[in-house]
């Protein structure tokens, strides 16, 4: 790469344009990172009055904290399940919406609705529905005679995380949006040829369309990874991380350390680890968006 020559005027103008942005970045992120890194090496409570430097001790404690380890594992499982749901349900629904059906537009909107609504609202409505004694789901199941299926969806430690993850089905609006926006660019003659060769619906989906949408899958995967990594209120409002920490993810772990925990050093150390993962995800996203151009 050859060195570019920058004129003084252009450089001054450039920095003038980005000055407000830089102010926000420095005040909130640069200072925020400094704050977390510094506190990560300290032992201090929420008052921050008498911080004590303790080196890497917080990180050592985190590494042996099974709850933290468990929360990371849960976050990964959560992300993988959400991605799978997006790539299957989202993919199939987006294609099925390309067929002439009465009320198609309405159903398209309905599938998109939960994506726009606040997660806090959806989580609370679902929590009401899944309540074991008088929630709508169990009332309904008992009504049609399936009493044995009326389970403790959110209070049974073995079931709670599954219930929460299945909720991702309600969030296929985003994958659908990405897939649908890609369809106009598809080569229709390939589809016609495949139909002429006798490919049925199942084969069209799995052997023709799924490979054709390879690049869109990447967008979907990345967007769901980002969303899962930032997920908080779904867990917070449905189970609060319980029962018995079975639904704890990294964000609820950090939140609990902030509010219940006395030790801000450990919270900060955990936050620094989360930040490092966030930087990796951002790098993936940067590479992906620049590659697409």
């Amino acid at each position: 790469m050859k060195a570019k020559h920058y004129s003084w005027n252009a450089t001054a103008a450039g920095y003038l344009f980005i000055a407000p942005l830089l102010a926000v970045m420095v005040v909130f992120f640069a200072y925020g990172f400094y704050f977390l890194v510094r506190t990560g090496f300290q032992s201090t409570d929420i008052s921050f009055h008498t911080p004590k430097y303790i080196g890497w001790d917080n990180y050592r404690l985190l590494l042996v904290d099974s709850r933290f380890f468990h929360s990371i594992l849960n976050t990964i499982v959560f992300a993988v399940v959400s991605v799978i749901i997006g790539l299957t349900f989202g993919f199939v629904a987006s294609i099925f919406l390309q067929f002439k059906l009465p009320g198609k537009k309405l159903f398209h909107s309905i599938l998109f609705l939960p994506t726009i609504m606040p997660m806090a609202l959806i989580a609370t409505v679902i929590a009401m529905m899944l309540e074991s004694r008088f929630g709508t789901l169990n009332t309904f199941l008992r009504f049609i005679g399936l009493d044995f299926l009326a389970l403790q969806w959110l209070s049974d430690p073995n079931l709670a995380y599954g219930s929460i993850m299945v909720m991702s089905i309600f969030l296929i609006g985003l994958p659908i949006m990405y897939y649908v926006s890609e369809f106009p660019t598809l080569n229709t003659s390939v589809l016609e040829a495949a139909v002429l060769d006798g490919a049925g619906l199942g084969r069209m989906l799995t052997l023709i369309l799924f490979p054709m949408l390879r690049n869109t899958h990447k967008t979907v995967i990345l967007s769901i990874l980002l969303g899962s990594f930032r997920e908080f209120e779904r867990i917070f409002l449905l189970t609060g991380g319980g029962p018995m920490n079975s639904t704890e993810i990294v964000s609820t772990y950090v939140f609990r350390q902030q509010n219940g925990g006395m030790e801000m050093g450990i919270m900060s150390a955990a936050s620094v680890i989360v930040l490092l993962v966030a930087f990796i995800l951002a790098l993936l996203q940067i590479r992906f968006t620049t590659m697409k151009k």
Binding site: L36, F229, R230, A278
Partner: peptide, 12 residues
């Protein structure tokens, strides 16, 4: 800073 979750920035 694209992927940072707000929860870790709450205290700062």
């Amino acid at each position: 800073c694209l992927a940072i979750p707000l929860v870790v920035m709450i205290v700062p």
